[in-house]
Design a protein around this nucleic acid. Structure first.
Lengths: 349, 349
DNA sequence: ATGAAAGCGCTAACAA
DNA sequence: TTGTTAGCGCTTTCAT
């Protein structure tokens, strides 16, 4: 029996030598067990296990068409919004034998483009969780490499988006039913597609109710945006606000408390996303719940089915996931506007 | 001029054809610019840019020794504890030209081992953020592939750990200084190394103060552990607790509120980790802050320097990062024990 | 400074 | 059913 050097990774050639067959037979036995006689297959698989063989994926990836890698690009890995997405996609990808490459684009379209450029030959496809790329660039990219965008809808690119309009409608009407008439939209970063979609949806609902909601901001991502946003809000007449996302809303909650503004007695707060933390902040946040983990699963599935059937017409190009309003304690009846005043002084911190 | 087919990825051979040199020269020009004449180098680099060339990483990885991939294994991607770690390592790895493969082991040692086994030939190294593997397995693995563990210290394996004892000491003494004498440790999963380390540290401090702290639990990870833990706590005489981690502590906070127990008036709460959310939960949580993002950076750096200098003795094998207590509003003076009673009835939910 | 040639591990035609 | 052969794209000797 031939004993391969134990300090060198075991290859199919080693297995071939040990079992006395050709390397290609080993390859077949391991990948398409059906095309090999039962006897040899068993012998080979036993030897593989015995030698603790693991395939060398890069070598396999040399043959065109399959690297086994899918990239997932997020704008900020520490944003809890992505946690569920990452987990959802990871589940699907792992089950299908793909590795997930997590890439943080640092919220920059250039980083995003550069990473994709550098990695494109290493990838079978990519999931873009919050692309900052212009439509044209995205469409062009999708020609070169299978792509699924999340929360971004551009023609010709597969996508998973949330049904923002219906969720926003629920949110606005929830506040209206509580007696609020002055409702502000607290805007997020202007380069965010979700932000624009939400603002558009708000406008549409407001128009339907013969109202016009003011908008404050935009406020960038970052620790102190919540404070700035809360301060800006208090200058207005608003008795309620809908914030671009929960992070911003939670930041505002903190600042409002500092300034002695009671939520929801003085001001009602509504967030978007229902991220980790929305249920235990103070007070627990009423928010538009988006099925983000499902979005991750769906995005991965779309990509995988596309890889399997490169041009199948059955692959849907755009999936819309339902959203719903989760009512917690941060929203309540509108205060009598005339008697409204903030107990605390403005404290600059 | 030779025009390569535009629908096929550009290879160094294409560049060679275009510039009239040999493929090997292109390779050199791109990787070791010093070993090529300035003129040809410029010509080649220009052509590469022109053709929008990107190296095919799997092919490069065929040559032994460098795949460009580092795996980061976490027990649960949705656990906020890991966010900073992932970001820290990602920063370092990206800067060094490595791709980060994020792997969720689902808190199972078997998954962990299996993933590592399957991927080992694809990897230049791995960071194990919360390994569930037995010491022997870990040590054996470290022989085969460069490894850095985080929050896990096993001889012969590079590691980054937190200085739990000093942080725990601060926490315990903080509570003692507030008059607490009955302090419980709320234990996390028994297969967690951190959990055992924290419990050991607590015991040591208690002994130094002539006390013996009771321990309740263990409580597994999961949404409802906090409730169970809070209920268990209320059966004891404890006026304060230190929870295995913030997630557990926050869950307990929620349950305590449901049951009408005031924090910190009736019970003081201390968590561990200072995760996202610890600063805005209700009340904001006093917690042992661990520099987890730094841990990610350090772990990546250790791995990278190890890859560069395979057996350099200068690479430290174990790094201990300082921790400190962050005092927020969940801890306060101990109540008079005799007058202590919980206003609310026990509500099973 | 540059070219020629071999080979990394695996898969897929094709042949037997 | 199995073996032979030829690459995949790149790096790396070894010549020149």
């Amino acid at each position: 029996m031939v004993t391969p050097r134990p300090d060198r990774p075991v290859t199919i050639t080693d297995i071939a030598a040990v079992t006395g067959v050709a390397p290609s037979t080993v390859s077949r036995a391991l990948n398409r067990p059906g095309r090999v006689s039962v006897a040899t297959r068993n012998r080979i698989q036993a030897a593989a296990r015995e030698l603790n063989y693991a395939p060398h994926l890069p070598a396999r990836a040399l043959a065109p068409g399959r690297t086994g890698n899918i990239a997932v690009l997020v704008s900020d890995v520490t944003n809890p919004f992505y946690f569920g997405l990452i987990r959802g996609s990871q589940q699907q990808l792992k089950a299908a034998g793909y590795a997930q490459l997590l890439v943080d684009t640092e919220d920059s379209g250039e980083h995003e483009a550069e990473m994709l450029r550098a990695m494109r030959r290493t990838l079978d496809g990519a999931i873009l969780a919050a692309s900052r790329l212009p439509e044209r660039a995205l469409a062009a990219l999708a020609e070169q490499i299978p792509l699924v965008t999340v929360n971004r809808n551009v023609p010709g690119v597969m996508s998973v988006v949330m049904d923002t309009p219906s969720g926003i409608q629920q949110a606005v009407e929830h506040l209206i039913s509580l007696g609020h008439r002055d409702i502000a939209y607290v805007s997020g970063p202007e380069n965010s597609w979700s932000n624009r979609a939400r603002w558009r949806a708000i406008n549409a609902v407001a128009a339907r109710h013969g109202m016009r909601l003011p908008r404050i901001g935009p406020f960038p991502r970052g620790r102190h945006s919540g404070s700035a946003a809360a301060d800006a809000l208090l200058i207005t007449e608003a008795t309620a606000f809908i914030a671009f996302n929960d992070l911003l809303a939670i930041g505002m909650l903190t600042r409002l408390r500092e300034r002695g503004v009671r939520v929801p007695a003085d001001v009602s707060a509504v967030g978007c996303d229902d991220v980790f933390g929305a249920d235990f902040c103070n007070p627990p946040l009423t928010t538009l719940t988006t099925p983000i983990e499902q979005a991750g699963r769906v995005a991965a599935s779309m990509l995988l089915s596309r890889l399997k059937h490169p041009v199948s017409p059955v692959t849907r190009r755009a999936v819309v996931l339902p959203t719903h309003l989760t009512i917690r304690e941060s929203s309540g009846s509108a205060p009598d506007r005339r008697s409204r005043n903030w107990p605390g002084p403005l404290v600059l911190s």
